[in-house]
Simulated scan of single mutants.
Amino acid sequence: MTDPKTHSLIEDAQGILFGTFMASFGVLILTHLGFVTGQTAGLAIILSYATNWSFSAWFFIVNLPFYWLGYKRIGLRFMIKTFIAVALVTVITPILPMFISFENLNPIVGAILFGFCTGAALMALFRHGASLGGIGILALYIQEKTGFRAGWTQLLFDAALFSVAFGLRDFMTVVYSFLGALVVNLVIAINHRKDRYIAT
């Protein structure tokens, strides 16, 4: 009999596909509005605005140093799933604009929608033993070891990144961006608890 606490391969596959698709949709909203965000995705966004390289290229590159931590601290299975998730976002993100565009998107609504979509994406990935790399790996490791919520760790990192963003983007763009990042991290902090959801 299958252990009800363990996800099947098909369940993992759909969870990771859902998570990466929703994350890519979140990036589409973000870049359409010219926003920034936190974590490694935020770093990749800022670098893409400052260079001729795409978000996808930077996102893949900035995550590379964190795979070793994921492997050493959390395990090979987690690292492989995370690598797959990052690779899928890298592929899906530049494809979505071919099929989706926004005629009118209010920045406040867009920020909240980005937050909900990305929060749901990260929840799905976390619950299926993956992340989108970078600070997500570090946040999950800290949560596993200390019980300090992953969302709060990410929120602290985001605060530092947004301090830098104020020197690169206009004030209101950063304010709207922070709203989106706040929603993402609140979704994770409130909903992602190991004692409530233990399947892996």
Results as ranks from 00 to 15, higher is better:
residue 149 R to L: 08
residue 108 I to F: 15
residue 56 S to N: 11
residue 91 V to E: 13
residue 127 R to A: 05
residue 7 H to F: 14
residue 64 L to H: 07
residue 86 V to K: 10
residue 177 S to C: 04
residue 11 E to Q: 15
residue 76 L to I: 06
residue 11 E to I: 03
residue 133 G to F: 12
residue 69 L to T: 11
residue 157 F to T: 14
residue 180 G to C: 09
residue 91 V to W: 14
residue 187 V to M: 14
residue 33 L to F: 01
residue 29 I to D: 12
residue 125 L to W: 02
residue 134 G to M: 10
residue 112 I to F: 10
residue 71 Y to S: 09
residue 30 L to A: 11
residue 198 I to L: 07
residue 137 I to W: 03
residue 143 Q to N: 12
residue 128 H to G: 03
residue 170 D to H: 12
residue 115 G to I: 08
residue 65 P to W: 00
residue 91 V to Q: 14
residue 37 T to P: 04
residue 92 I to P: 06
residue 181 A to G: 13
residue 185 N to W: 04
residue 40 T to R: 03
residue 118 T to H: 02
residue 159 A to H: 03
residue 126 F to S: 01
residue 181 A to Q: 04
residue 114 F to W: 08
residue 12 D to F: 00
residue 123 M to W: 05
residue 82 T to F: 01
residue 7 H to M: 11
residue 90 T to G: 08
residue 47 L to I: 03
residue 72 K to C: 06
residue 99 F to A: 14
residue 92 I to V: 13
residue 1 M to S: 14
residue 111 A to E: 04
residue 15 G to Y: 05
residue 11 E to T: 08
residue 175 V to F: 04
residue 28 L to H: 06
residue 192 H to W: 11
residue 35 F to P: 13
residue 89 V to N: 05
residue 161 L to H: 07
residue 12 D to Y: 00
residue 108 I to D: 04
residue 21 F to E: 00
residue 174 V to K: 01
residue 60 F to R: 02
